[in-house]
Structures are given as structure tokens and as C-alpha cells.
């Protein structure tokens, strides 16, 4: 069947050629059944003007679609125009143009200038036989590409300033609290070696926080990379999260312990003690109340269940009595 369908156009053509003769011999048509007869039909359809457009006509290809957002591609700077670093020279889809001297290509193949100078559009057969390059030169008269083996033209683009020494931060702030707190490092999970000490600095909002660059350094210590992290090279995402939870718990526990130790050492006045006792009693009461509530609920449920069992038993008995 498929073969036949494939052959259809051929049949059409052949029958078209043969038609003047073949149509005169109905005998042959009758003898050749199927494909040829169908071919004639198709051919007749063509003649009668039922044609489906597969090729556009009359300059339709030249017309641009009107319902799209314009992408605004193309050259943004002409040759010999002055540009500064970061200027966009050419926007494109794919690499019609390549970045040459003092230029870079962005993520979407846009060509940017990387130096202040004059734009040059050029080819460099020594580098690549087919590519077109956009470059930036420091002197307008320069011609790209530069001759091979001559020294690169480079600009420093820097100015000299005297180094100003920052005054050291005072150890105690104006309000009398230390500006830095050093917390001893804790051992990583599964190892006895302690990590580096954490340096916390006083911030504007009176909180103590680690510097971001110090936090960044910790990543290196943990051996975490894009692919592997947490607890070694082959740890899964689940393992990483588990270890994160574990670490968080560990930290909480440590904090709890330290606060408890502090409380033990501190001398409390009687009011605080009383307040603490009261708070503790209230907490216990609350817990007890919750327990009672649960117990009551359970009892009620048990009663209801018992009642239901009894009811159903009675029903059964009744039914059996009636049956008799």
C-alpha cells in the first residue's frame, strides 16, 4: 500500500504522458486495474484546478512576518567609530561575526568592545579562512589584522594613586561591645579534626555575622564543588541534605548546651528563678493538659467503638431471631 502511494505521482506523470493514446483504448484500462486508473484520476484533478499550495508565489517570501517582536539585530557600530569598553558592536543570532582584536563575544553571540578605540570589520585568513572578525584598534589608522610576529599593542588603562592605609578597627565599639568575636571551629561530621575558627564581626544592626568572603572560603574547606558536595565525592542530593540537617541539629545542640552551661554558671536572682519556675510549671501544665485531652479523646473513641460493636451484635442477634 505504501509503495503504491509513493508511486502515485509517478503514475500520474506517466499516465499524463500516455493519456492521449491510452484514453483511446478502454480495453487496456480495463485490463490494468488499480494504480493506473487512480493515476488518471489524480491527473484529472490537476487539470480541473484543485491544487494545494506548496510553493508561495508573487514575492511572498520577501514579506516579513508582521506579528512578531522585532529582534533588532545587526551592527550597532560602524567601522572606524569610536567605542568604549562594554559597548555593543554587533547583535546577531549565531556567529556571523567573530570577536577579533580587543573584543569579546557575549552569551548570545553579541560582540562587545573591550577597549576604547575604533571599530574595524575585517577578515584574518591566517587565523581562520572563512570567518569575519570585528576588532577595536587604538589608532584610527591601524589596519587589522596586524602583521604576524610583531609585538601586541596593549594599553595599561590605569592610573597611579598613593596607597591609603586603612586604620585598624578598634577592638571595642563605641557602645562598649567587642567588634569581633572568634568562635572556635567545630569538627566536621565523621572527622576528629576541627575546622577553622569562625570570625564574627559586629554589623550596623548590632548583629554579629561572618564576612561573606570568609563564608566563601569555607566552601573550599568542605570540598564542595559543582558536582560533589557535602560528605565526599559520591554523595547524593539526599545525603547532602541529610548532612545539612545533621549539621544544623549539631549546631543547635551545641548552642543549647552552651546556653545551659551559661545558665548554670550565672547567679540568678529570686525573681528570675520564680519566673523560670512559673514558666516551667506552665509548660508542664500545658503538656499535661495536652496529654489529658488526648487521653479523653482516646477514651471517648474507645467507648464509641464499644457501643458500635454492641449495637451491631444486638442487630445480628435480632436478625437471627427473626430468621428463626
Amino acid at each position: 500500500m505504501r509503495l503504491l502511494r509513493l508511486q502515485l505521482p509517478i503514475w500520474a506523470a506517466v499516465s499524463g504522458l500516455l493519456r492521449p493514446t491510452v484514453s483511446l483504448t478502454p480495453l487496456t484500462i480495463a485490463a490494468d486495474c488499480g494504480p493506473r486508473a487512480r493515476g488518471i484520476e489524480v491527473n484529472n484533478a490537476l487539470v480541473s484546478g484543485r491544487r494545494y499550495a506548496s510553493v508561495k508565489s508573487q514575492g511572498q517570501y520577501k514579506l516579513k512576518p508582521k506579528r512578531t517582536i522585532p529582534k533588532k539585530l545587526g551592527a550597532k557600530r560602524t567601522g572606524d567609530q569610536y567605542v568604549i569598553p562594554g559597548n555593543i558592536l554587533y547583535k546577531q543570532r549565531g556567529t556571523l561575526w567573530w570577536p577579533g582584536e580587543n573584543c569579546i563575544m557575549g552569551r548570545d553571540h553579541t560582540i562587545h568592545a573591550m577597549a576604547a578605540g575604533y571599530v574595524k570589520y575585517y577578515r584574518d585568513p591566517a587565523r581562520h579562512p572563512k570567518r569575519k572578525y570585528i576588532g577595536v584598534v587604538f589608532n584610527k589608522d591601524d589596519v587589522l589584522p596586524y602583521a604576524p610576529h610583531i609585538e601586541r599593542k596593549r594599553r595599561l588603562g590605569m592610573t597611579a594613586h598613593p596607597i591609603v592605609e586603612r586604620p585598624p578597627q578598634p577592638e571595642v565599639s563605641a557602645s562598649g561591645i567587642p567588634t569581633t568575636v572568634v568562635r572556635a571551629g567545630i569538627a566536621a561530621p565523621g572527622s576528629s579534626r576541627k575546622g577553622p575558627a569562625r570570625v564574627l564581626r559586629l554589623r550596623d544592626d548590632y548583629s554579629y555575622r561572618e564576612d561573606n568572603w570568609r563564608v566563601g572560603r569555607l566552601v573550599k574547606l568542605a570540598g564542595v564543588t559543582k558536582t560533589k558536595g557535602g560528605r565526599g565525592p559520591r554523595s547524593s542530593r539526599r545525603a547532602r541534605f541529610r548532612s545539612r540537617r545533621w549539621r544544623a541539629e549539631q549546631e543547635l545542640e551545641a548552642r543549647r548546651r552552651s546556653s545551659a552551661a551559661m545558665e548554670e554558671t550565672e547567679e540568678l536572682d529570686e525573681w528570675t528563678k520564680a519566673a523560670q519556675r512559673r514558666a516551667e510549671e506552665e509548660r508542664q501544665k500545658k503538656i499535661q493538659a495536652q496529654k489529658d485531652k488526648k487521653k479523653k479523646q482516646a477514651e471517648q473513641q474507645a467507648k464509641a467503638r464499644q457501643a458500635a460493636i454492641r449495637r451491631s451484635a444486638a442487630k445480628k442477634e435480632k436478625a437471627s431471631a427473626q430468621g428463626r
Binding site: V83, I84, P85, A116, L156, M158, T159, A160, H161
Partner: peptide, 13 residues
């Protein structure tokens, strides 16, 4: 040793 080099500011066009 007491001099530091800083990038020159390139002003927008």
C-alpha cells in the same frame, strides 16, 4: 611600593 594602580574610569559616551 606605596603606589597603587587603579583602573582609569572610562566615561560613557
Amino acid at each position: 611600593a606605596d603606589v597603587e594602580l587603579r583602573p582609569t574610569r572610562v566615561r560613557s559616551l
